[in-house]
Design a protein around this nucleic acid. Structure first.
Lengths: 225, 225
DNA sequence: TCAAAAGTGTTAGATTTACACCCATGA
DNA sequence: TCATGGGTGTAAATCTAACACTTTTGA
């Protein structure tokens, strides 16, 4: 192999995943206890090293798939974290990604296998290395994005009630929303379609189920919640 | 040295800088012809490799300093670019940064030394590798940020007229702004202070010069342009 | 005296917010 | 029959957008 760039130093590159889920009215992330040295036993994001023949996005997808069994997970890059001493073991530059999954789709056996837990973002422990900073940045980016792009649907089942959707926004943004105003805005979004199905699981009366119509969104892709 | 992480593959990591400047009423970036193989002679961002004992932010600062002679340049990370074949020479993961500088502060001799040119963002050539994508993302991020945070001042001299500031916003966001509405909004921002100095260089009548008061901003750090 | 940029307020329309009651149902 | 969550409209306040003329001064 021709080396064009002489002897510049090479470093380990990893990806770390902030996996968001919406459960019990709270926004949570999936974290576990680190099972290698250094830092064994500390709370940590789940991650993995980028191998020589995969892109960083591929690496993130691979890690997410290992962890959840799911493919085509909605995922966005948070950024690169590269302080020299960020990892006490060895120099590692890490690229953080956040992902949104529907908790109900998530395979419980994999959760146990990896020893992971859903922890509310309001109740996060101190984590390994700079992982708290990664989560902070991911959350900030996701909050901004969820108000302008239809990504909330990745956190919900395919069919959802307006109350569920509202609770989700409240959990993500950390503030209550007026029910009537919220529904008014949803009505203006033609890409959130009312179905004729009714969910009776959370009230006696039952609530209409809605779904996201991607095609309709692509035609008129603008909103502000 | 203890190796904790076994034999995962290591890769070259570089930083690439998108240096924005405001000149002749246009938003421009500083690019040059690549002076190494592969891709010699192609238009390219200026970059450099991250060395073993510096953080990625330090690397970006070093590269920016080499290029401009300036320190403490306003700079933000755009993100990591890590397709396997993004660099035809060898696997390189690159972290893009954008920076804002005042063109007038910029040392012309360094510009010539590095063979760089200011090119309007409306008139960008095809560039090496994924550099056009980096610029696109940087621009998008910077546009969003400039409407909510006082970063425009990094592109202007310490003292500036409201017309200059307005032209800057127009150049960055790519759309005209109503002069009276613009000035009304500026008046509401207590951290943009009118001085008693007058600039006569661009009109017979002269225009008041303003300056950014960081301290006042930190007290009341909110606006939306 | 005139060209060229600086500076200045008002009003209509649109958007946002606050707010309270009836409905349907199963237990 | 009642407790629970589902569903609905209006009015005041705020914000946004459109718009045109006077001022100053050097050439």
């Amino acid at each position: 192999m021709t080396t064009y760039y002489g002897e510049y130093s090479k470093v380990l590159v990893s990806v770390d995943c902030i996996i968001f889920g919406f459960d019990e009215g709270e926004l949570k992330i999936l974290i576990g206890r680190r099972n290698m040295d250094p830092g064994r036993g500390l709370w940590s994001l789940y991650g993995g090293f980028v191998s020589g023949n995969e892109s960083i996005d591929d690496a993130a997808n691979r890690v997410l798939n290992q962890l959840t069994g799911l493919s085509n997970i909605y995922m966005r890059q948070v950024g690169a974290f590269g302080n020299v001493d960020r990892d006490p073991g060895e120099r590692v530059i890490s690229i953080a990604y956040y992902a949104l999954i529907n908790v109900k789709d998530y395979d419980r056996s994999l959760q146990e296998k990896h020893g992971l837990q859903w922890i509310s973002i309001n109740d996060l422990p101190q984590m390994y290395s700079d992982h708290n900073i990664m989560v902070g940045k991911a959350l900030k980016m996701m909050r901004r994005k969820i108000s302008h792009e239809p990504i909330s649907f990745n956190l919900l089942p395919e069919l959802f009630t307006l109350t569920q959707l509202q609770k989700l926004y409240e959990a993500v943004c950390g503030e209550k929303v007026d029910k009537r105003n919220f529904r008014k805005r949803i009505k203006d979004m033609d890409f959130i379609e009312k179905t004729d199905q009714i969910d009776k699981s959370s009230s006696r009366r039952g609530a209409y189920l809605y779904k996201f119509n991607k095609r309709a969104y692509d035609d008129a892709p603008n909103f502000k919640l």
